[in-house]
Write a protein that binds this DNA or RNA. Structure first.
Lengths: 222, 222
DNA sequence: TTAGAGATTATGGATTTCCGTAAAATACTG
DNA sequence: CAGTATTTTACGGAAATCCATAATCTCTAA
C-alpha cells in the first residue's frame, strides 16, 4: 500500500472526503494542496529530500483566483509531475466525463487511474488506490470506461483547437489566417482553414460554425 | 439553531464534508439526498408528518444519470421547495459563479444564502448557517457578492434565450424566423431577429454570433 | 529526374450574416 | 381623434462564410 500521498484539490469540502478515504486505508502520511503550483513544489521538494511521494491524487479543474499561477489546471499538473517523477502513481479524480479529455490523460500524462466524481465515487477511489498500489494495472470508472476504447479520436490536432479558440473569442476566419501567417504556422491559407473547419463540422455533426464552437465548448475541448 | 436539515448534493465526497459541518454545529437531525426528486419527496413527506425541515442545503448542478428525473437541477429544486414550504430556509452551495444565475436564485427562488464552493467554503457555510438560523438576513460569499449589486441584468428575456438556443443547435437565422412564425411568436421578422442579436452582442461584448453563443454557453445561460 | 499521389493554396460564385436606413404598424398622449 | 414616440418590419449593400473546382507545391518511389 502507498506510504506517502499528496492530494491536489481546491475544494475543501472534497479534500475532506478524500482524506477520510486515506484514513480508512490506514494511510496517515499525506499532504494536501489547494493549488497546482503548491503541489508541484511539494513533490519536487520531496524528491530532493529523498522522500518522494508514491501517489498523487489530483483534481483537474481548479478555480482561478486573482493570484498568478504557473500551473493552471490538473491536466498540466499531472503532465509535469509525470515528467518530473516517472514512477509516481497518479490518480485523477474529477467530474470531467468527456471521453476526449480522459483519453488524453491516459495517453499523454500516462495517469494510472481515472475516478469520476459521482454518487459512489468514494468507493471507486478506494478501489483505484488498491489496484494501483499493488500492481501496474490501470483503473477507470465504469461510467467512462468507453473513453479508452474509443477508436482514434479522429485526431483533432493542436491546430484545430487553436482555431476553435480563436473563433470562440470572436476572431473572424480571415484574421485567424493572418495571425497564423504572422506566427509562421504552416497551413495558413483560406482554403486550409475552410477545409479544417469543414472536417470539424463533419466530425462533430455541426451545421455551421456557431454550432461547432458550441459543441466544442460543451465537450470541454475549448 | 436549525433542528432539522436536509442536504441535496450528488457528489458523495462533498456531502461528507457538509455533514461534518453540521456535526460541528451540533446538528444531528439531518438527511441527505443524492437526487433532487428524492429531496423534494422527503421535504413534502416531512411537512405531511408535521415535522418539516427548517433548512435545505442544496447543490445546483446534478449529474444526469440514465434514470428519468422530474427535477433535473438545483435551480428547479429550490424553486419548487420555496413554493411548497415558503418559510424554509434555503442555502445554495455551488461552484456556480456566474452573476446572472446567482442573482436569479435570490430573485426568483428567494434563497437565503449562497455559498460558493471554494478553498475555504466550509467556514463560509458555517457562517451562512449561523446567520440564516438566527435572523432573516441573507448571506452571500464575498467573492460573488457583486452579483446582487449588479443593476438590472439588462433584461435578457425568454425570447433572447430561445434564439440563442436555436443558434447553438445550428439553426440559421432565417429558419429561426420561420419557426417563430409557425409558432405564432410575435416579433418574427428578419430585422427584429437581427436587432435582438445586435443588442445581445453589444451587451456581451461579442464580435460576432460565434462568440456570442460561446459566451452565453460559458455563462450558463444556455 | 521525374511521374504521380497527396497536401496546400488559389479562385470564384452562392449563401448567409451584418449593419444602416427607411417605411409601416402599434402604442401612448393630450 | 390627431400627433408623436416606440416598436416592428422591409429593404439593400457590404462583409463574411460556405462550397466546389482548379492550380500549385511537396514528397516519395520508380
Amino acid at each position: 500500500m502507498f506510504k506517502k500521498v499528496i492530494i491536489a484539490e481546491d475544494l475543501d469540502a472534497i479534500s475532506l472526503g478524500i482524506e477520510q478515504v486515506l484514513k480508512d486505508l490506514d494511510i496517515v502520511d499525506f499532504q494536501h494542496s489547494k493549488y497546482c503550483d503548491d503541489a508541484f513544489l511539494k513533490i519536487r521538494a520531496a524528491i530532493q529530500k529523498n522522500e518522494p511521494y508514491d501517489l498523487l491524487i489530483s483534481d483537474l479543474s481548479f478555480k482561478t483566483n486573482h493570484r498568478e499561477v504557473k500551473i493552471a489546471n490538473g491536466d498540466e499538473l499531472v503532465q509535469k509531475v509525470r515528467e518530473l517523477q516517472p514512477d509516481i502513481k497518479i490518480i485523477a479524480y474529477s467530474v470531467e466525463d468527456k471521453n476526449y479529455r480522459i483519453k488524453s490523460l491516459f495517453d499523454n500524462a500516462e495517469i494510472d487511474a481515472f475516478v469520476l466524481k459521482g454518487l459512489n465515487s468514494i468507493e471507486e477511489l478506494k478501489k483505484a488506490i488498491h489496484i494501483t498500489s499493488t500492481s501496474d494495472q490501470k483503473f477507470i470508472s465504469p461510467e467512462v470506461a468507453s473513453a479508452l476504447q474509443e477508436k482514434n479520436n479522429f485526431e483533432i490536432d493542436d491546430l484545430d483547437i487553436q482555431i476553435l479558440k480563436h473563433l470562440s473569442s470572436g476572431t473572424p476566419q480571415d484574421e485567424i489566417i493572418q495571425i497564423f501567417k504572422d506566427l509562421g504556422i504552416k497551413p495558413n491559407s483560406k482554403s486550409a482553414m475552410e477545409k479544417r473547419l469543414s472536417k470539424l463540422k463533419d466530425f462533430f455533426k455541426a451545421n455551421n460554425t456557431v454550432q461547432l464552437v458550441f459543441i466544442a465548448k460543451d465537450l470541454g475541448i475549448i
